[in-house]
Amino acid sequence: GPQGEAATVLRLAHGMPADHPVNKAMEVMGDRLRELSGATMQIEIYPNGQLGSERDLLELLQIGSLAMTKVSASPLESFVPAYKIFSIPYVFRDHQHFWRMLESPLGRELLLSSEPARLRGLGFYDAGSRSFYASKPIRSPEDLEGMKIRVQKSMTSVEMVKRLGGAATPIAWGELYTALQQGVVDGAENNIPSFYLSKHYEVSPYLSLDEHTYVPDVLLIGLPTWNSLTPQQQAWLQQAADDSITYQRQLWEQKTQQSLEALQANGIKVITPDKEPFRQRVLPMHQAYNNTPMGDLMDAIKTLP
């Protein structure tokens, strides 16, 4: 358009479908930014992973050909080791504790800690807690014995499943539906809306809410792009991002509730196991970090109210 010529266009790519709470929140961010900047800045969103996987998008941010992305904290581990904290199970007591950390100075520090990797965090989106789903009910770690569980590409996730007694199996996300259907793996783990939206419930009838990890989504801008903005533009963008986060958290809560109801309506058995036996099994993972920066971060999180 005519005003598009003068405007700064920030291209934002991510892997979620267009009706996902994250994408809707990004649209709100775009609207806010246009408003704040008097239409001199706009955000163009590329959903559905059409510009690449989360890992690819992070590299494109570093290269500078893409401005912004949203990734799960998990692939960020390969760029900024501190993000491993979210893959370690049972670091957070519950959802409130998790958000208290994200909103504390610890969370702020984490967002800025990726700057040496040319990535600046603008904020966290809620991605809930991750739980197991499988072809069989999982009520205790004993039930996981011998089960093949697909995990994210992170060594911390692999260790977690091993400690809980399962066999961690790497399967590409795109192949997971058929792998579950044909029994190459017995189960996987994810948050409730993803379990629903990925339709994996069609082939795994049991959801076990053990809530082992809280892995947030992270909204990032590449440093090459960030540095090309004026301080005023940076402030507008940060404001728009903050507003979209508030909006996304409400949407996420609704989406989680709706997904849970839809899952139950589709005959999925939702199990709420006692988390303590799960927590006990993975405590050695916490102890292994004693006297390391990661251990200090973990201690700081545990002392949060």
Binding site: R55, P75, E77, S78, F79, A117, M155, V158, P170
Partner: peptide, 8 residues
């Protein structure tokens, strides 16, 4: 330069 590693 950015010490980027593979996931596994």
């Amino acid at each position: 330069e950015l010490h980027q590693t593979s996931a596994s």
